[in-house]
Lab assay of single mutants.
Amino acid sequence: MMAYMNPGPHYSVNALALSGPSVDLMHQAVPYPSAPRKQRRERTTFTRSQLEELEALFAKTQYPDVYAREEVALKINLPESRVQVWFKNRRAKCRQQRQQQKQQQQPPGGQAKARPAKRKAGTSPRPSTDVCPDPLGISDSYSPPLPGPSGSPTTAVATVSIWSPASESPLPEAQRAGLVASGPSLTSAPYAMTYAPASAFCSSPSAYGSPSSYFSGLDPYLSPMVPQLGGPALSPLSGPSVGPSLAQSPTSLSGQSYGAYSPVDSLEFKDPTGTWKFTYNPMDPLDYKDQSAWKFQIL
Rank of each mutant, 00 (worst) to 15 (best):
M5L: 13
G8A: 06
G8K: 02
S12L: 15
A17C: 08
L18N: 00
S19N: 04
P21N: 05
H27N: 04
A35V: 04
K38I: 09
R40N: 12
E42G: 06
T45H: 06
F46H: 12
F46Y: 10
R48P: 08
L51W: 13
L51Q: 13
E52K: 11
A59I: 08
K60M: 09
Q62V: 09
D65R: 13
V66R: 07
Y67L: 07
R69V: 14
E70K: 01
E71N: 07
K75L: 07
K75V: 12
I76W: 15
N77P: 14
P79A: 05
P79V: 08
E80C: 07
S81L: 08
V83S: 12
V85Y: 12
N89L: 14
N89I: 15
A92K: 14
C94Q: 05
R95H: 15
Q99K: 10
Q101E: 02
Q104W: 02
Q104H: 08
Q105P: 03
Q105K: 09
Q106A: 06
G109H: 08
K118M: 00
K118L: 02
R119I: 06
K120G: 03
K120D: 01
G122H: 10
P125F: 06
D130M: 04
C132I: 09
I138S: 07
S139L: 06
S139W: 10
D140H: 02
D140N: 04
A156I: 13
A158V: 14
A158Q: 01
T159A: 06
S161C: 14
S161P: 00
W163C: 01
W163L: 02
P165Q: 01
A166P: 01
A166D: 02
P170R: 04
P172H: 11
E173G: 11
R176F: 13
R176N: 03
G178I: 14
G178N: 04
P184K: 08
L186H: 02
T187H: 10
P190H: 10
Y191K: 07
T194A: 07
F201W: 09
S203T: 09
S210Y: 12
P211R: 11
P211F: 12
F215D: 00
G217Q: 03
L218V: 03
D219C: 15
D219H: 13
P224Q: 03
M225D: 01
M225N: 01
Q228K: 11
L229H: 03
L229A: 02
G230N: 04
G230K: 07
G231W: 15
P232M: 11
S235A: 08
P236F: 11
L237D: 01
S238W: 12
G239C: 09
S241L: 13
G243Y: 10
S245A: 09
S245Y: 08
S245D: 00
S245L: 13
Q248Y: 10
S249K: 08
S249I: 12
T251I: 13
L253R: 10
Y258A: 05
G259A: 06
Y261S: 02
D265A: 15
S266D: 02
E268N: 05
F269T: 00
P272V: 10
T273V: 07
W276C: 01
W276I: 04
F278V: 04
T279A: 01
D284H: 13
P285A: 10
P285W: 08
L286G: 03
Y288C: 07
S292G: 10
K295G: 04
I298A: 00
